[in-house]
Design a protein around this nucleic acid. Structure first.
Lengths: 355, 355
DNA sequence: TTGTATGCGTTATCAA
DNA sequence: TTGATAACGCATACAA
């Protein structure tokens, strides 16, 4: 049933599986080169044959074999995306943003989740990326030097999401330091002078760079307000809700309870809020809390926070990778810094008066 | 370090890009077929040559070209995963579970996000899945008949995550109806008799099947307790936090406030909690709230809920797809139903006494 | 156990 | 503008 160009109309519906470029060419009465040209870009194809080819392809509901196309062209039309925890809000949003852009350009997105050391080692040792992607998006992953080298050696465009302190290259991110300072400024303007920070472990692979940058912003914010920089007011716990919960518990054991808390991420802020609610401390009456991210669930907790455009970062990073690929840009060293903004909700207010 | 016995040391490190099977064969002093055989499964290869081949491959840091391999074998070693909103908790967890299993078996995971109608139509019309996957995981997406047909016509194993009422096939999911009834039972045992349900729109593409099943469980639970089934106590709003918030607001306008609320999902429960907190109604003092999912942030809200193993469903579905592919199972019609469990936290308690 | 040879379905080069 | 034809790099049936 497959080939016969005189086949009855409905037949094609059922055979689509094994239809190849030869079948289309035969049906259109042209050569396979013409089919190939027509189907992508159609440069230098007369309107007439173009019509015939497209119709033939549609009739047979032809889909080019990606494998063959990749082998012949050397291009995979695939972008690899490296994240640590694909299910976490930030990563998930970036992935979603990138997927949309890539799909629209008919690119595939290949996901690499390297949260645990084993899979991370696997990625960088056997380098499965090697022959399967035309470009790489590395999301908020601070790479070691050898990892960076491995990535560079791939010889494909690399776009980093979430600025890294180190080497140059293409990237999109936010200004973590300035944004953290913005959070502190908000608290200071409310009248707070005793502000603590809840933060991830500085050597946690999850986001060392981010943690350090936001800590720096915390200090800078205090400094700008003429307040003393008090490193003892920075509490470190593993990143996440649980860490936030524990960090807040630790703050409660201190002789002096701060009047406000800046959490490095909304997730940590959620944990902190949980602890405060549990012990019956009012927010923001007794303690103000401000987070970072504007997580999807921040409104549900009425959390004041610094919003960062995660989805947008994914979109832009993907677009950037595509540009790099198609040579639409000469800027190989393009770094985009997106704005963040303060979102005031109900968890911040003036300090209590017990000081 | 790498290459040694023939080529100059550093060389291999830099050329890895263009190394192909011929290079490996030459270096090992064997034919390319032997290399091919050795590198996958190594059936019928003598220990000696096997050694040589592996060493040669390692020396050259050879990575087989997936494109060539796919073209020659006809297999893609790729599983397509269709979800609606890759960033939502449930989907994200399933993806994460599947990715781990697939990666471990050296399969790629190709993500298709079809939340908006346009991309959904695109997926089913041009069927980009056609020549790019060996199997498909469809996550909690209730397909139309024509969509199901299109999927079936792909001729590859299909595993559905989240049971569908309709056709048979392979699948993994939970018993939504029984689980919802479990939630009601918990409330009934606490003494509640006036229970409302907050639910998604029954014709929302997000999860019609799920919504209907959980509603049925709600009714069944009431019935089992000898309580009247009151459809007027089911409030429908778009799925999500915002929907939950509005649904609770609507309940507040009713003449009689229920003493307990069962939310179809934790996200909706978060919204409901938000509303209750805003108007100053105590939870569970005035109103008890129970959710469904055990979302990552449920503990942070101290939310009582029905836990379902999303990550595990992803793992099992992927494993099932792999089994179907390798013929490790004769059960083409395997349906796995995983247990759910009640997780009692702080948002449920005895009813208030005003009735 | 190992090697030879063919085919997989495109892209791209070169002629026409 | 169109058509032959040689890669692309591997898997596999078959032969040795």
């Amino acid at each position: 049933m497959r080939g016969s160009d005189a086949a009855p109309a409905g037949a094609a519906d059922f055979v689509a599986a094994g239809v190849n470029i030869v079948d289309v060419a035969r049906r259109a009465g042209v050569s396979i080169s013409t089919v190939s040209r027509t189907l992508r870009g159609s440069l230098n194809v007369s309107g007439d044959t173009r019509e015939r080819v497209l119709r033939a392809a549609a009739d047979l509901s032809y889909v080019p074999s990606p494998a063959a196309s990749r082998l012949a062209s050397g291009r995979t039309r695939t972008i690899g995306v490296i994240v640590q925890f694909s299910a976490r809000w930030f990563f998930a949003e970036v992935i979603r943003g990138a997927e949309g852009v890539l799909r629209a350009s008919d690119y595939d997105l290949l996901l690499f989740n390297v949260g645990d050391p084993a899979s991370r080692a696997h990625l960088f040792q056997t380098m499965p990326l090697r022959r399967r992607v035309d470009g790489v998006l590395a999301v908020a992953t601070n790479f070691s030097e050898s990892e960076t080298t491995a990535l560079t050696r791939l010889g494909v465009p690399l776009v980093i999401v979430g600025h890294q302190p180190g080497p140059s290259g293409a990237g999109v991110g936010i200004d973590d330091t300035e944004s953290a300072a913005m959070a502190v400024r908000h608290l200071v303007l409310l009248g707070h002078v005793d502000i603590a920070m809840i933060s991830g472990l500085p050597d946690d692979p999850i986001g060392r760079g981010t943690t350090l940058a936001r800590r720096a912003g915390f200090s800078a914010g205090l400094h700008a307000a003429g307040l003393p920089d008090r490193p003892d007011r920075i509490v470190s716990e593993p990143w996440g809700v649980e860490g936030g919960r524990r960090a807040m518990e630790r703050l409660l054991t201190r002789p002096q309870l701060p009047t406000a808390v800046f959490a490095e991420s909304d997730e940590m802020a959620f944990g902190a809020l949980r602890t405060l609610r549990r012990v019956g401390l009012e927010v923001p009456g007794a303690v103000s809390v401000i987070g970072f991210d504007d997580h999807e669930l921040a409104p549900a907790s009425d959390l004041t926070t610094i919003a960062q455009p995660a989805y947008e970062q994914g979109r832009l990073a993907a677009a950037m990778a595509l540009d790099l690929l198609t040579g639409n840009t000469d800027e190989v060293d393009q770094r985009l810094t997106l704005p963040t903004r303060l979102v005031v909700r109900g968890t911040t207010g003036p300090p209590r008066r017990d000081l």
